[in-house]
Design a protein around this nucleic acid. Structure first.
Length: 221
DNA sequence: CGAATTTGACCCGCGC
DNA sequence: GCGCGGGTCAAATTCG
């Protein structure tokens, strides 16, 4: 039924029940997966640059009643299940959060310039794109800034207009070989509601420009 | 001048 | 098989 789109669509519907009424409980966020799953977006050390305001991820400051964030996780099985994660889903941990073992590692070191495009290889492995369904994390944050500063550097690589009048922006980590994608979409209803969807895991530390040691918590892949 | 952003075009998977 | 919708790339432009 729903392939990749089904998974992404679930994100949209994720906020449906929330925006309809009160956005979740006062808790503000629900943690999925192991603590390591969320640590990837946790800046080890905020350190410098603070022009806007650090990402108000309630991971460490859940007491911030100003910004409410909802965290969701969509595994690879999300496409299999016809029903999106509702409130019921937001509260239980997916039993299988591991990505497809197909050959996720194969596409990783094939060609970073064109992972799926056949520009270089004009034959054979044309379908390199595959499903490539990495664990995604959806955050519904109430903030006035589109891109939340989570310690990583993001470069926008596209913006598309979709039906729901949403203008999702697509960002990618500017790191050497880190292809972590982030989708940021705003609700037309609530301009201050921002849904950030992280896809993939960072293979580096958020701020390793001067301190690149240890930090092996991310190199899971 | 370099890097980041913008914007249109292209591609792909799925629905019909 | 064709069309739709969404996602990505890449050239051009803008910003620092």
């Amino acid at each position: 039924m729903d392939g990749d789109r089904g998974a992404s669509r679930s994100c949209y519907e994720l906020e449906a029940p929330f925006s309809s009424a009160q956005p979740v409980h006062e808790m503000g966020f629900v943690q999925f997966e192991e603590s390591q799953g969320l640590s990837f977006l946790l800046p080890c050390q905020p350190s410098h640059h603070h022009h806007h305001h650090q990402l108000s991820l309630p991971i460490n400051n859940s007491s911030s009643s100003n910004s409410k964030t909802t965290v969701g996780l969509s595994g690879d099985d999300v496409a299999t299940r016809p029903t999106p994660w509702n409130n019921d889903q937001v509260g239980r941990l997916e039993p299988k959060t591991t990505v497809n073992d197909e050959n996720s590692s194969g596409i990783a070191n094939d060609d970073n310039s064109s992972w799926w495009r056949n520009s270089s290889s004009d034959k054979s492995k044309v379908k390199v794109r595959r499903k490539l369904r990495e664990p995604r994390f959806c955050f519904q944050t109430r903030s006035d800034v589109d891109v939340l500063d989570d310690g990583y550097k993001w470069r926008k690589y596209g913006q598309k207009v979709v039906k729901n009048s949403l203008h999702p922006s697509y960002y990618r980590c500017t790191h050497n070989n880190c292809r972590v994608k982030k989708r940021v979409e705003r609700l037309s209803e609530d301009c201050r509601m921002v849904i950030t969807t992280y896809e993939g895991r960072h293979t580096h530390s958020p701020c390793d420009d001067s301190n690149s040691s240890e930090h092996e918590c991310f190199s899971s892949f």
